[in-house]
Design a binder for these strands. Structure first.
Lengths: 217, 217
DNA sequence: ACGTTAAATTTTGTATACAAATAGAGCAGC
DNA sequence: GCTGCTCTATTTGTATACAAAATTTAACGT
């Protein structure tokens, strides 16, 4: 239990990601501090870190609020993700080991099985979202570019907030799973153009799926 | 003179960028604080911000050091810049106004004139580097994507450190200026594929120019 | 001499105290 | 009733104090 600042950073972060802290809600340092039984100092540090990641907005002398995003922001984010994640695929493909391919195939399988079960969406959706993050994260890791990973990480926070609420249509879910399979197949074939193209399409399709639906608020 | 933290942030930042603080030098909070006549608190905040931008590395309980980069890091950075700046060109081209094109042409002209003068490289290089940053920054601004701008900004710090020391070969300089001209011409023609392709080549050429030369340390 | 361990010093992390700035309530004037 | 002001109360920004951790120094034994 090393650093308090890190702990409170994670707490506030998950509070935002789960929607516990609603959009553009004001984050008063002292309130957060007393509610966690600590002093303002680590809270302040955590808020600045969250600001650097784009999860909160801070104005000088006026404090921090939970960041909010409009449709234009989401378009930007998904466009950039489509470019960067496709690049990750391009880099990962020639480096992919048999074990890594197998790992990705396993994630695919798990997601396909989850998709077939008749679980309520309350339990199924988070499980799918978690696997999805693992799949994308693994490919980024395989790309062996730390900066690329950092860049994508900063972009991914906002979509994660949405994923908790968003219910994908059955067709979109199927398409998404097929994309994953196709990406792995392309990587197995050593075809980085194929792999990166599917990844690009995959993220752009997700963009339309999310921007097409009405706001859940 | 609002916030001390911002002032000290900028001071440390330029100290790193000008090479005044050498590579992997340790940054002790108290030392920096007394040398600027302030307390540790704003210094600490500044260091965390610099860490978020990748200019310093901080380890828990072990403080901050000036970040250092190897050849692999530089490759990563230039590869990503080539992708993102080319994307900026793609977005900017259909949006470019006549005034913006003219502005870019002016920057081209100034750089061409500077290149012809027989000034010592000590004065000429910073002037060229400044214009270069203006040129690229303008195109990013024209892309109208704040997130794209932020992403590129985080990548650009390290190359800026190099630009201060690096002496370009005359041929590389000429090629660079021709690239700039060609980019503007492509934008004027409304051809975003052309424009983004030249930009991609432009950044990749810069990568080879920098990675090809031996280390100045 | 060398390496290992133990104190001493330095340095980071957190808490508290105070100053400066902002936001909000209440009131005057129109 | 609405606008603009002043004064109060929050809230942020900075300084200082203290505790925990790490680094350095010194001593000790083999």
């Amino acid at each position: 239990m090393a650093k308090i600042a890190t702990t409170v950073y994670e707490q506030i972060r998950t509070a935002i990601l789960t929607g516990e802290l609603s959009n553009s809600e004001r984050l008063v340092e002292e309130d957060l501090a007393v509610s966690m039984g600590i002093s303002r100092t680590p809270v302040r540090e955590a808020l600045r870190r969250l600001a650097a990641e784009g999860l909160v907005d801070v104005s000088p002398n006026r404090g921090a609020r939970v960041a909010e995003w409009d449709v234009h922001d989401l378009r930007e984010i998904f466009d950039l993700r489509s470019i960067l994640e496709s690049h990750a695929c391009e880099l990962a493909t020639p480096r992919a080991s048999a074990a890594e391919i197998e790992f990705l195939e396993n994630v695919c399988l798990e997601m396909e099985e989850l998709a077939q079960t008749e679980l309520s969406s309350e339990t199924r959706l988070p499980a799918l979202a978690a696997r999805n993050r693992i799949f994308h994260g693994k490919i980024i890791e395989m790309s062996n570019s730390t900066r690329l990973g950092l860049l994508i990480e900063t972009l991914i926070h906002v979509p994660i907030v949405m994923q908790t609420y968003k219910v994908y249509s059955p067709e979109a879910l199927q398409r998404s799973l097929h994309h994953h399979r196709e990406i792995v197949n392309a990587m197995k074939a050593g075809d980085e153009v194929w792999a990166s193209s599917v990844m690009r399409a995959h993220v752009l399709a997700a963009r339309e799926e999310i921007l097409g639906q009405p706001d859940p608020a």
